[in-house]
Write a protein that binds this DNA or RNA. Structure first.
Lengths: 215, 215
DNA sequence: GTCTATAGGCGGATAGAC
DNA sequence: GTCTATCCGCCTATAGAC
């Protein structure tokens, strides 16, 4: 190549290639289960290159994890801050979260586990996003719930508990649904995809119904 | 000791000691994060002894995991099969699950993560318990829900979905509650213990209220 | 920027003395 | 039944050639 920036391009391509491979392997095996050799092999490069670009397994992991959190945020939680009707918001949030899971099933399990091993140094990686993006958007949701209650559209509820309920009702069946489905003797479920889609629909309707009526 | 069975006793004590240490370390660090050296150190014995009693890290892990699952079953899910009133059962199940978590917080995270890495060889470790104890007890719950619906005590619901809802509403806040509480800007929560206890209470009441009324 | 070669340590597992 | 000593392989990370 005679392009003078081809070195730079190669660099970016390789860095990206490693990051993608690392994401794949870390999500599959977790931090402790993944080795730098696994990642290098998956990326089609040598182990030494990982350290050239990312200095250490730990730092590579942090970038992967950061990316996963931000994607999860963009794909589902960001909806909480949008200026739309509360009921539509709840439906959209549930559907988007379900879709995010179905398009990359292991990611949610990975994030949910690794996050429990978080220490403060990890948390500080996100302090900016947390304060400037995440928390303000969630607070939009809280405010909206309070407002609708004052208007009488919904009965008064604790917004934090409501959010916790919604997240719980969607996430756990998604992260552990496949196992639960295997243990299930009640239904004969052929297609997990359809099951999750229908459950998302049904869950959203139940929550909204509960908010409207007095239960 | 002149007790002729003292050898046997030592054996049992040591085996038990290793198993306890392994449980502690595996729960803390996960299978991949834990090393046999960690476990030996925690047990106050040599690495060689682990292999003498359990043959491999894998087999030691299986025993630990098995024990965790069975304890979890005894402490919470077994309630589903008891011959008591449905509403009492739901309350008891929620309270017991919450207590089980509060008495050993990391255990639930550990089980929930490792279970997602399950393969069939692991599943076969429990096939007996599954078929003879677990599933029949869960089916008692399903039957009971159907029966109450026929009597008109509750509105008709899908028993499998109901169980999934209940488990979701309790477990996710427990396994990830501490992180969520740190991110929470809505409440000023001083005492997680009280928060979880109160939430358990409130969740049980909500579910029962929903079952009774038409929502 | 990318490779090979290798350091240095820790992983799980085993042999053999007591 | 319990220990020390040790094997071998894989781990993360680095040095240095190209």
């Amino acid at each position: 190549m005679d392009d003078p920036s081809s070195h730079q391009k190669n660099k970016l391509q390789t860095e990206e290639k490693i990051l993608l491979a690392a994401k794949k392997v870390f999500i599959e095996k977790g931090f402790d289960g993944a080795s730098t050799s696994d990642i290098a092999r998956a990326a089609g490069v040598n182990k030494a290159l990982l350290h050239y670009y990312f200095r250490s397994k730990e730092k590579l992991f942090q970038q992967v994890f950061r990316q996963c959190i931000i994607e999860l945020w963009e794909k589902s939680f960001s909806i909480l801050g949008q200026p739309i009707d509360l009921f539509d918001k709840i439906k959209l949030f549930i559907n988007k979260t379900t879709e995010a899971y179905l398009s990359a099933p292991r990611t949610l399990n990975f994030v949910m586990y690794e996050i429990t091993k978080w220490d403060n140094s990890m948390a500080s990686l996100f302090s900016d996003e947390l304060e400037k993006i995440f928390l303000p958007n969630v607070e939009v949701f809280y405010k909206q719930v309070e407002q609708e209650a004052r208007k009488g559209t919904i009965k008064p509820v604790d917004p934090f508990s409501l959010l916790l309920d919604i997240v719980s009702l969607i996430q756990l069946p998604l992260t552990h649904g496949l196992i639960i489905l295997n243990l299930n003797t009640y239904h004969n479920i052929k297609d997990p995809y359809t099951f999750f889609k229908e459950r998302a629909q049904h869950t959203a309707e139940s929550i909204i119904h509960c908010l409207r009526s007095d239960c």
